[in-house]
Write a protein that binds this DNA or RNA. Structure first.
Lengths: 198, 198
DNA sequence: CCTACCGATCGGTAGG
DNA sequence: CCTACCGATCGGTAGG
C-alpha cells in the first residue's frame, strides 16, 4: 500500500482516463473522428481496445468526453473579463494556441467534420459557435457603450468576423507547419477597431 | 447508331466520369476523404465499385481528380482582373459560393483534413494556399500602388487576413445551415480598406 | 463494365 | 483490465 495515495486504485484509473483522453485528442486531431480507431488510441495508451471501452463505453462517448474536457479547461480562461478587456484576452488566446498545435488541430479538424448534420459532434459545435459569437458580440457591444470602439464597428458583424479570422488563420498556420505568427494579424485587426491603443 | 453522337461510347464514358466526380465531391464534402467509401460513391453513380476503379484506378486518384477538376473550373474566374478589381471579384466569389454548399463543404472539410502531413491532398492544399495568399497579396500591393488603399493596410498581413476571413465564415455558414449571409462581412471589410467606395 | 473474392480493419460484445 | 470473437465494411484484385 502506498501511504501517499490511499486511494491508489482510483487515482490510477483517473490517470489512465486522462492518458486516453490525451491520445484521443492527438489522434482525432490528426485524422478526424471518423477515421480514428479505438485500437490505435488504446495501443498508444498502453491498453487493449476493450480496456479502453471499460473507461469510455463507446467511441462517441470518448469524443464527447474529449470535447467536454477541452471546454472545461478553456472555459476558465475568460471568466471575469468583459468589453475591451475581453477583446484583449482574445489576443492572448491566439498566443496561447500557437503553443499547442494538438488542440488547434483537434478543433480545426473536428469543427469542419462536424458541419455534417449527422456527425456526433454537430450539436456541440453548433452550440459552441453560437455561444462564442454571442460572447464576442457582447464584448464589442460593451466596448462600444464605453466609447472605446470606432463608430463604424458593428458588434454582430464584428463578432462573426473576429471568430472567422481566428479559425481561418489556424488553417493557414497548420498548413504552414506553424512557421508563421497569427498574433500580429489578430492584434492589428482589433487595434484598428479600438479608439485607444490596444 | 446515334447520328448526333458518332463517338457515343467515348461520350458515355466521359459522362460517367463526370457523374462519379460529382458524387465524389458530395461524399468527400459530407464525411471527408478518409471516411468516404468507394462503394458508396459507386452506388450513387449507378455502377459497382470495381466499375468505379475502371475510371479512377485508386481512391487517391479519384481525390486528386476531384481537386484538379475544381481548380480547373474555378481558375477561370479570376483571369484578367488585378488590383482593386481583383478584390471586388473576391466579393463575387463569396456570393457565388453561397449558392453551392457542396463545393464549400468539400474545401472546408478537405483543407482541415489535409493539414495532416501524410494526407494525400496535403501538398495540394499547401500549394493552393501559398498561391491564393500570394495572389491576394499582389492584388493589395497593386491597389496600394494605384493609391486606392488606406495607408495602414499592409498587403502581406491583409492577404492572410482576407483568406482566413473567407475560410472562417464558411465554417460558421455551414454550421448555421446557410442561414446567414457571408457577403456583407467580407464586403464591409474590404470597403474599410479602400479609399474609394467599393 | 460485372461477380466473386482477398486480407485488413473497424466498433462492440462475451466471458472471464 | 485481458483474449477471443462477432458481423460489417474497407480498398483493391482476379478473371472474365
Amino acid at each position: 500500500m502506498d501511504v501517499k495515495s490511499p486511494r491508489g486504485a482510483y487515482a490510477k484509473g483517473r490517470a489512465k482516463r486522462r492518458e486516453i483522453l490525451d491520445h484521443a485528442i492527438a489522434l482525432f486531431g490528426d485524422v478526424g473522428y471518423r477515421a480514428a480507431s479505438l485500437r490505435e488510441i488504446a495501443t498508444r495508451s498502453g491498453i487493449s481496445h476493450p480496456g479502453l471501452l471499460h473507461h469510455f463505453p463507446t467511441k462517441e462517448a470518448l469524443l464527447l468526453a474529449v470535447l467536454a474536457h477541452r471546454d472545461e479547461v478553456d472555459g476558465e480562461l475568460f471568466t471575469g473579463s468583459t468589453g475591451t478587456d475581453a477583446l484583449r484576452r482574445l489576443v492572448d488566446l491566439v498566443r496561447l494556441n500557437a503553443g499547442r498545435r494538438a488542440i488547434v488541430e483537434l478543433f480545426t479538424v473536428l469543427s469542419a467534420e462536424a458541419t455534417a448534420p449527422d456527425h456526433p459532434a454537430h450539436r456541440f459545435f453548433v452550440d459552441r459557435y453560437r455561444r462564442t459569437v454571442a460572447g464576442v458580440e457582447r464584448a464589442y457591444a460593451l466596448a462600444g457603450e464605453a466609447g472605446a470602439l470606432r463608430p463604424e464597428v458593428d458588434p454582430p458583424a464584428a463578432a462573426r468576423h473576429l471568430v472567422a479570422l481566428m479559425d481561418g488563420l489556424q488553417i493557414q498556420w497548420l498548413l504552414e507547419n506553424c512557421r508563421t505568427d497569427m498574433v500580429p494579424v489578430v492584434r492589428a485587426h482589433i487595434k484598428a477597431q479600438l479608439k485607444a491603443p490596444l
